[in-house]
Design a protein around this nucleic acid. Structure first.
Length: 473
DNA sequence: TCACCTCACACTTTTGAAAAGC
DNA sequence: AGCTTTTCAAAAGTGTGAGGTG
């Protein structure tokens, strides 16, 4: 196998003519990624996962945890995660289900979370599940901490990228593969909308133990009463004004028959399996999760995360329309493509996606074609319009990483100006059409996303260019 | 008025430095 | 002296619910 060093050398040649064909690193297509705790994810997914986003940043729960195999033990890899909008809509919670509430807001700056262990040899990644526990989500578009910025009431799903690279400098010249898992999609919220989700979180998140009804919760409430009688009096007053007894109101499990209420809710959560996305049944979800595996339902265990994306199309430069995990195309989708498309999800033409101002990027046709009311109460078709926009990894961070950051999480920022500026006129020369798909790629892997970052070799200039060309919408 | 967001709170787990033991 | 284990306080991560905002 050609070493990554050789690959780097080849790719560093400035001329597009020098762009090598697919290197032997395509053999890395053996990489397999499996989502850990799929049952937990599934239980959330069936109800409609919500993730809290806050100004200071909030961790995900369940958090992203994956297992990797098929890596070259001695080769170094970098693991990245980013969040991709599911569609071009904004949602609202109406009674007991999510409804489309209009077009999505312009996408905030795209950021990528780099696993703090990166870069590490394949043996390191494979020896145990890899957790992205410390990844945080925020709704603060001016966030300085590098958290992943999302819009509330919008739907996203995480995407995992694995890049064979000795260090962050090499990323741009390296092959990377992308994986997604349909069950990890979620709605970003600032406060939980679906009480079933709240309950699931409380039941499974150790930090929320205090809210469980197994004794400590009541103790907590009692303490609170003692600690701040004034507050409680105030609260009681306000509740009286609303005409409900203070101890029963508000809480999903009031003092009155709390156990029964809880039992009832548990039954609802476990048994009802209702989907806020238009009544998708468990069977349907299972079917969807399984049937999208290119290897069929039986392959889910073995190839739990392999995905289905037409290999050819993903090689189109600057766009990645087929990626659209919507409808989720497999248990996890992996795609193979050029470095010019990672955040792909566009219905618009690739040229339209390169508008110079991300804030004004029009929502795609899809959202225009399909009136919200027609979509309401149903899970919108994933292919629904996406906005394209691109981003640039903040390489100043990457640069510092190699020397200073050590084992701290690195977030790569995709600034709007950078992103669009660079797309503005450079790419044709800068990002020549990628080579044809590897002829020796096994059928299975032709469906994966394998991106090549074809960039110029001048390291001093590389911060101008994206690690991934981002089309987040 | 309403939908959404922010904040302080109580409670929990995690982290890391200091102390103790070997 | 050096290493490992234990202890404990501080920090960080939770959902709650009142109040704020547009």
């Amino acid at each position: 196998m050609q070493s990554i060093r050789d690959l780097k050398h080849n790719l560093s040649l400035p001329s597009s003519a020098a762009m090598p064909g697919p290197p032997d690193s395509y053999h890395q297509g053996n990489i397999r990624m499996v989502l850990e705790e799929p049952e937990l994810w599934k239980s959330f997914h069936e109800i409609g996962t919500e993730m809290i986003i806050t100004k200071p940043g909030r961790r995900m729960f369940p958090h992203c945890k994956i297992s990797l195999s098929g890596l070259v033990p001695y080769a170094k890899y970098i693991l990245l995660v980013d969040m991709v909008p599911e569609d071009g809509f904004r949602y609202k919670w109406n009674k007991d289900k999510w409804e489309v509430a209009g077009k999505a807001e312009p996408q905030p700056p795209c950021r990528t979370y780099l696993h703090p262990d990166s870069p590490a040899p394949g043996s390191h990644w494979m020896k145990q599940p890899v957790s992205f526990l410390k990844l945080k989500l925020t709704n603060n578009t001016l966030d300085q901490h590098g958290h992943i910025i999302l819009h509330s009431m919008h739907r996203y799903h995480p995407r995992f990228h694995i890049v064979q690279a000795d260090d962050l400098y090499s990323v741009r010249w390296s092959v990377f593969q992308t994986f997604t898992f349909p069950e990890t999609s979620f709605t970003a919220v600032t406060a939980y909308q679906n009480s079933k989700i709240t309950k699931l979180k409380i039941d499974h998140n150790p930090f929320a133990k205090g809210f469980r009804d197994e004794g400590s919760n009541t103790k907590r409430r009692a303490n609170r009463t003692l600690v701040d009688p004034e507050r409680m009096a105030k609260k009681a007053n306000s509740m009286l004004e609303r005409g409900s007894p203070p101890d029963f109101q508000q809480s999903p499990h009031g003092a009155l028959d709390r156990e029964e209420v809880q039992r009832k809710e548990v039954e609802e959560v476990k048994g009802e399996r209702y989907s806020p996305w238009g009544g998708e049944s468990e069977r349907e979800i299972n079917h969807r999760l399984q049937s999208h595996s290119p290897l069929g339902p039986d392959a889910r265990d073995a190839y739990g995360s392999e995905q289905l994306v037409p290999g050819q199309s993903t090689y189109q430069p600057y766009r990645f329309h087929e990626y659209g995990k919507s409808p989720p195309s497999s248990t996890s989708s992996s795609s193979v493509g050029s470095g010019a498309s990672v955040c792909g999800r566009s219905v618009r033409g690739s040229f339209e996606s390169r508008v110079p101002d991300v804030a004004t990027v029009p929502i795609h046709e899809a959202s225009g074609k399909l009136p919200p009311h027609e979509i309401a109460a149903t899970h919108p078709a994933p292919q629904a319009g996406h906005q394209d926009y691109t981003g640039v990894i903040n390489m100043s961070m990457a640069q510092s990483k190699t020397g200073v950051l050590g084992h701290h999480p690195l977030y790569a920022t995709y600034g709007a100006e950078q992103a669009l500026g660079q797309w503005g006129g450079q790419h044709p020369a800068q990002y020549p059409p990628p080579p044809p798909p590897p002829h020796h790629l096994p059928a299975d892997y032709a469906a994966q996303t394998m991106h090549h970052g074809y960039h110029h070799g001048n390291v001093s200039d590389w911060s101008q260019y994206p690690l991934f060309s981002y089309s987040c919408w």
